[in-house]
Design a protein around this nucleic acid. Structure first.
Lengths: 129, 129
DNA sequence: GTTATTGCAAACAATTTGCACCCAC
DNA sequence: GTGGGTGCAAATTGTTTGCAATAAC
């Protein structure tokens, strides 16, 4: 068994817990560096991968990059396809379904992502994009 | 106004409508080529971008690549973080919320993605990953 | 004819991988 | 000492962009 977390994983997880927003691997790399807990970028990626498989972090993809956050509450978003801005929403109507799927599909669900896409007020009203 | 679709966009949209699964840009490129409707890869990406902003296609991200599908019914998935396999599910409990958000956040919502992540039966039971 | 669209190749950016080194046990 | 964990740099991959050729109207 290799259930124990490596030191890098601990550092990253600690960092994620102090933040209350999802961040990219590169941001984690920089932020750890700021805190003099330097890690190689490859290590950051490898650790995140491990944490992900362990069900310790959740991932969503925004504009081509993965954003990681600790596995606390659901956090969903409204993202503008044009300007790429992303605003959080509070609601989450999927809890029940999640429980149900877990048994009906024999699948150990760690987390889910729920994201809405469209045009924000500003971009939607622009005549020439 | 540039509401009209370009020929490339039409081809891609037609293709997507005949498929009932989401496909990557590269797969679209290859499939069009098979049908002797050759398009440059850049054109495929550009067209998809336009279709996306027009609300004509929806996009989900799987294992680092964008998968496109025509905007028909919701199609959500259960994805294994380990083997990467992705199986569709039928349910969708978000319709109401979507309508509600549209007004409360002044946001024109085109579509949403709802994806569950965890470990499938097979991967979950493996002792040594 | 003027303008938007396309293809190609080069550029980019996020992520992954090979390999040598190192640290913990 | 041995084996996993790490850093660095190179490689890979999906996607974007510059620009000249082309098609649309």
């Amino acid at each position: 068994m290799k259930d124990q977390r490596t030191r890098s994983q601990e550092r990253i997880l600690d960092l994620l817990k102090t933040l209350n927003q999802a961040v990219s691997a590169q941001e984690i790399y920089i932020e750890l560096r700021n805190r003099s807990q330097n890690l190689g970028l490859a290590t950051v990626y490898r650790s995140l991968e491990a944490l992900k498989l362990a069900g310790a972090v959740q991932v969503r993809t925004l504009n081509g990059e993965s954003l990681y956050s600790s596995l606390k509450q659901d956090r969903h978003h409204l993202t503008c396809l044009q300007c790429g801005e992303s605003q959080p929403i509070e609601q989450c109507p999927v809890r029940d379904l999640e429980t149900q799927l877990q048994t009906s599909h024999q699948f150990k669900i760690f987390y889910h992502t729920l994201e809405f896409f469209g045009l924000c007020d500003r971009c939607g009203s622009e005549v020439h994009p």
